[in-house]
Nucleic acid binder design. Structure first.
Lengths: 211, 211
DNA sequence: GTCTATAGGGTGATAGAC
DNA sequence: GTCTATCACCCTATAGAC
């Protein structure tokens, strides 16, 4: 959907149905015919993006937690795999850049209609992340686990959110840079593992970012 | 400025000069007389907010770094004080909630004009943070230090950015909750200190969030 | 400096022919 | 389903009286 690209970059208010129609060589009236209204089209785009970028790995890991929850080394690996999935979903070329940016707009300004979609598509992942972290540190209460989820998501989201700003800073690498993605993955995972006082996997042992 | 509140909540595109004028019982023409255009008013608001919420503590600490840089315990305390300042500036009631939200909009969608302001008012703080972290871990290169700054800022910004979303999650505390602010401060600081492998200050020793 | 009035243009949505 | 034409509205910005 070409609409998403415009919504992502200029917001709902900053995008006109006319611009959307022009971008995909369609008719203004046709857009309204298919989607009812601009507002509704926005919701359709959001649902599409959230479906595309859903993360399942935390839920998968929780489904077979008995295989790893008692081994701190495997807990650390679980963290790694979860961070890896999120970076794949948002940073790599799997999805166009505007997917992430739509997500950011949604987080910044959620309407009740938007929240229904998030409750269905986003919340389960956050819930899984929370319980996964609780598995890594048995006895951790919900409030503290939420802080850990916030820390993880915050670090990752920041790169999408502030991408345009960071790009203007001289000497910074682009988010599409493969080596940069790997550095972020390694860095964030290490912070989480060290913070949760889990054993550091050998493949994450000290190795400084290149540039 | 009442304009900022509207810009913060609905974005530039979603805010009309009429609404601004109405909110402060002024005339539509008067607004344009004083600020030239809506776009310019937006820039004035941004500059005002960034000036108000500037953080100086990192720069202050760097100015007298010889007092602490060789003592890991004092390094850890420096980290704490920097995080504390940022939380004070953005979470507590010192500034109205819309200050933070304007900041988020600016990060999400920086124009060249906006960036000039950020270069002047925001970049110095990020630079100071980077060098401060490098002081804590001598020999750390710029790329890695940037990752650390990103992690710190990402964790903090996330709470402002996704505030509305997080509020809808059942059982979550409000960001204005004083105990919550303290939990976040303690949590983020601990992550940074543990991640940088500095000694944990006694006042941050284990203590679980309440709720 | 502040107001009214208005210009000049863009907006979302729809009616009705094809 | 797709198009043209059009409605009714809201927008920014300004000219000109006070």
């Amino acid at each position: 959907m070409a609409a998403g690209e415009l919504f992502a970059e200029h917001g709902v208010e900053g995008t006109s149905v006319r611009a959307i129609a022009a971008k995909c060589n369609a008719n203004i009236a046709a857009v309204n015919y298919h989607f009812g209204s601009k507002e509704n089209l926005y919701l359709v785009v959001i649902r599409y993006v959230l479906e595309q970028t859903q993360c399942y790995r935390a839920a998968e890991l929780m489904a077979r937690k008995q295989e790893w929850e008692h081994d701190p080394h495997k807990c650390a690996e679980a963290i790694y795999r979860v961070v890896e999935e999120h970076i794949q979903q948002f940073f790599t070329g799997i999805h166009p850049r505007w997917h992430g940016r739509i997500f950011m707009r949604v987080l910044l300004q959620p309407t009740p209609a938007i929240w229904e979609i998030m409750e269905e598509l986003t919340m389960p992942n956050l819930e899984s992340l929370r319980t996964l972290i609780q598995c890594c540190r048995p006895g951790m209460n919900d409030a503290e686990a939420e802080l850990w989820v916030d820390s993880l998501m915050g670090q990752l989201i920041h790169y999408i959110f502030a991408e345009d700003f960071l790009l203007i800073v001289p000497g910074r690498r682009k988010l599409s840079d493969n080596a940069y993605q790997k550095d972020i993955l390694r860095h964030v995972t290490r912070i989480m593992i060290r913070g949760l006082e889990l054993p550091m996997p050998t493949f994450l042992e000290e190795e400084v970012p290149h540039a």
